[in-house]
Write a protein that binds this DNA or RNA. Structure first.
Lengths: 203, 203
DNA sequence: ATGATAAACGGAGATGTCTCCATTTGTCAA
DNA sequence: TTGACAAATGGAGACATCTCCGTTTATCAT
């Protein structure tokens, strides 16, 4: 343990780097609370953290990565919650478990709406599709595929469950979720209900 | 006709303005073909068209509006095709008409993939949701809602058809369509089939 | 024709993203 | 302790978006 660095020939994070990291996180959080994630530029964050822009960009290639770092703990918790629920409720029907997972995610989405939008916005600006690149969505995709496989056995449906899960994830992305929330005026619960009914054919 | 301007107290577009408009369109088309829509900046277009950046931005608030102008004719044609089809096939089943409209749109999407992506990209960067702001998607939304109402009478489904249409339009957006096309490796026909099967419950 | 006027123009500049690289600094081995 | 080296730094600068505003110009009424 004390010798990890020797054993693996890997240097530990330099002390000044660790300090800067924390200063960045503090600065970002402060500015985000002050003006909203969308309004804050990387430059402002660098200035507030008293570091050069280059330093900031080496650590976080864009604002999305910074936002992701800021919610990393919550993401881990979310997936722990999901795993726990799924393990403790193996006996429940797949559709009920599906709804529960959806519900857990939507709660998370409501809590971290701004930062999550920050993540997705720069993902789509910088590197194609949020679906592909965000680890969050990849992991969710796997979870939903598994549930769908129980509900729609591959031999009984013309739709590939990976595709079905892709469609579901579209509905959970910030832009579409917030659109339903703000433009169409749905509550979180109503959105859940609608999504559920579309993806679980209620025979 | 010769007196529209007098009658309506509206000046006609100035000659130099009209010339510039055409120069912009030509320049944009040339550069787009040369390097791809995504790689070309507004500055480059302004330079190529031999006008100042301010002039370009007054006419088109962003690259998306320019792209939209470039495909406006095709958009009109698309909706004419859809209207014609729907009028000539009133007797067909709603699901068949649904699939046909989907097919017409996907053909359009394949033809104008780059420019359409250009439109949607700046829509989402600049003004929230492509769903809301693009006239194309608004009109499609209406068409799909009408078809859904035939297939799923409001009293028989828990899902609002406006919501269903919103979900469908998500699947038709550039980023998700191209994701299926390029990452998942589906052909246009396979995507059509999958979307159809998800939104038309095949009892 | 011509002058008043609204429209169009262009380019400077504010702000933002992101890269590059000369310089500094912490760390580890000797 | 020290010096070599990898890691980290910061800021200049390349480009991009987009705005603002003083200047030019086409058009219409007279």
């Amino acid at each position: 343990m004390t010798n990890d660095k020797k054993i693996f020939h890997k240097r530990t994070e330099r002390r000044d780097a660790a300090e800067n990291r924390q200063r960045i996180l503090d600065a970002a959080l402060k500015l985000f609370n002050q003006s909203g994630v969308g309004q804050v530029s990387m430059n402002q964050i660098a200035t507030e953290a008293k570091i050069g822009p280059g330093t900031l960009y080496r650590r976080y290639r864009n604002k999305g990565e910074l936002c992701l770092d800021l919610i990393k703990d919550n993401v881990v918790l979310l997936f722990e919650d999901i795993d726990t629920y799924l393990e403790e409720n193996r006996e429940e029907s797949p559709s009920l478990r599906f709804k529960a997972v959806l519900s857990l995610f939507l709660r998370f989405r409501e809590n971290k709406a701004q930062l999550l939008k920050g993540v997705e916005d720069s993902m789509s600006t910088n590197s194609g599709n949020p679906l592909t690149n965000s680890p969050i969505y990849n992991e969710l995709h796997q979870i939903f595929v598994n549930l769908f496989e129980e509900i729609y056995p591959p031999e009984s449906t013309r739709v590939k469950n990976a595709f079905r899960a892709d469609m579901l994830l579209l509905a959970l992305r910030s832009d579409s979720y917030l659109f339903q929330r703000e433009v169409r005026g749905y509550s979180s619960e109503m959105i859940l209900e609608q999504i559920y009914s579309i993806f679980i054919s209620n025979k």
